[in-house]
Design a protein around this nucleic acid. Sequence first.
DNA 1: TTGCGATTTGCAATCCATTGCACGATAGTA
DNA 2: TACTATCGTGCAATGGATTGCAAATCGCAA
Lengths: 340, 340
Amino acid sequence: MQDPVTLKQVAAAAGVHVSTASRALNPVTRSVVKEQTAVRVQEVADRLGYYPHPLARGLRTNRTFTIGMVVPDLMNPLFPPIYAGAEFVLGDLGYSVLVASDESETSKGRGVVSALLERRVDGLILANAHRDFALPTGRETVPAVLVNRSIESRALPSIVGDNRTGIALVVRHLIDLGHTMIAHVAGPRDLSTGLARREGFAAAMSYAGLGVRQDLIVEADAFRTDAGRRACERLLNSGTDFTAVVAGNDLIALGCYDTLAAHGISVPGDVSVTGYNDLTFIDRVAPPLTTVAVDYREMGSAAARALLDLIDHDGGATSPSEPVLLAPELVVRKSTAAPS
Amino acid sequence: MQDPVTLKQVAAAAGVHVSTASRALNPVTRSVVKEQTAVRVQEVADRLGYYPHPLARGLRTNRTFTIGMVVPDLMNPLFPPIYAGAEFVLGDLGYSVLVASDESETSKGRGVVSALLERRVDGLILANAHRDFALPTGRETVPAVLVNRSIESRALPSIVGDNRTGIALVVRHLIDLGHTMIAHVAGPRDLSTGLARREGFAAAMSYAGLGVRQDLIVEADAFRTDAGRRACERLLNSGTDFTAVVAGNDLIALGCYDTLAAHGISVPGDVSVTGYNDLTFIDRVAPPLTTVAVDYREMGSAAARALLDLIDHDGGATSPSEPVLLAPELVVRKSTAAPS
DNA sequence: TTGCGATTTGCAATCCATTGCACGATAGTA
DNA sequence: TACTATCGTGCAATGGATTGCAAATCGCAA
């Protein structure tokens, strides 16, 4: 409807100079203005419904109170909770979240990051990093944190799940049930989650004294159901015997369900299957999937807090650091049973 | 790293005045500059990696190339595709999407809208509207469109699914199977989707000559599983006989699954159940749910296009209009069968 | 009453790009 | 050669808030 109120109008109405009005309205500089004046300005501002023009302010202060968040694919139920957790923390502090999805499954995806940087976001939360990711060089940068996936260089702080421990939980669970021939349908090796779970699998197997057989490990080329189907197919075609499959995540596990069913193999009757992530509704598929739960909302919140810390204190100067690990939790359902 | 390049620097390097540089770089005004000069400026700009400061530009032009999108809850698998569709269309044109979630299930939620307006978004896509929603008055407004849910006043354009037709499809399907005693666990009446499906249900029933029995209609207080459970419980407690349940959406249908199972009633053996939305994975629950598919990605895209239209042409002056309806599609699975 | 330090407030520059207006230069016409 | 269109470019204001610095005001003491 009507035009927004400007600071100049507030100042005029309060009978002071704009600079005084500015100081009166800004909590940080308020103390420099005479109490009585500050109150008057504040009242006028409230009455007129004044709020500062974010562009004008940002232009001057070089802050936008906007955070860029990059996700690979919001349709993957994994990411909405991460977003929700982050936005919950950030929104409270006056930040808005600019969401950009980077559908490209390649390691480039610098396009969206650059786009966000050009928009002068105050920080970045990256949920889509490949292991070889690096912020674009040769251009101004902002504080950034990784979430869910970490990178090889450790150049950016990251908040991720403890994938090694998580996988160890399911391996332990399967061994406790009596399994010894356990296969792994791994996620892509170029994502830290895929690699860490694969390494965790190997570590847990050798720790249990079962050894690591490469013919029991296949890799899905994406954390998706279709990729899981194909990978499981390869596993079956190799002719290797196994009584349990540790899938790289829930979607791959669903792909295994499909392929196993297509081969007339019953879960968990003939083969046990485990997933990772505990997606919504994964408890309602047939059979309900034994998996590892990660608190993704908390992960998003933690990432946001870490980012704010970077913004407020270190000014973005980040020294290489180990990922912050969130504890996973085993969720036993009906897709695992003792080997027949 | 280094500071961003400003137009002034480009102009200096090209040996022209900033205004000339500005015109040379802006496609609209490029023709006013001598071709040769324009080329030179462009080359310098490219070499220096110049891009305009969005805040400075926005301050002057009063455009932010930012669209605000409000969703009730991104964790509901319904909304990510809507976002994806919208962002796909908008991103191509240089717009970024500011996502805000309004968890409050009340009809206020003007808080987030106001926050977005204060940020000077160029337009709004609202996916969370209650039937009595209206944009905040007495303040400047921007073009806005509704998606998925429409409002009573018709004051804003909306892109929604054809809920009446969709429900008619499932009712028809159930009748074809031989059902006559069909119950409806409706969604909340204060959401257009809840109301339209309820009305569609009544219309389809009377069209089929089965009449509308109020004792066969209960209302869930939210489009959630828990609300569906409770509502279904009420339906059963009322003692009314029925052989099929048309649920207001997939989540409510899952709630019905739970309650029916708790009462030892088998689906679809004793009672058939239908949902609405065809959520991801709903084809994998036990039993796979017969439901109505809506192309939510397309809905998001359509909303974005409608919004862009409003922004570019009408300048936001909207006259009341009927919702744009997207055709639904019946998806028959295993939760429906002939009555026993 | 004059003077000095401490508060308050005002001035003006700054952030960066856009754009109406005017000036200068070139081309074309009489 | 003089004169008017045209074209290209520069000047300067503008958008709105922030902030270093200077000026004004006040209180209080000598």
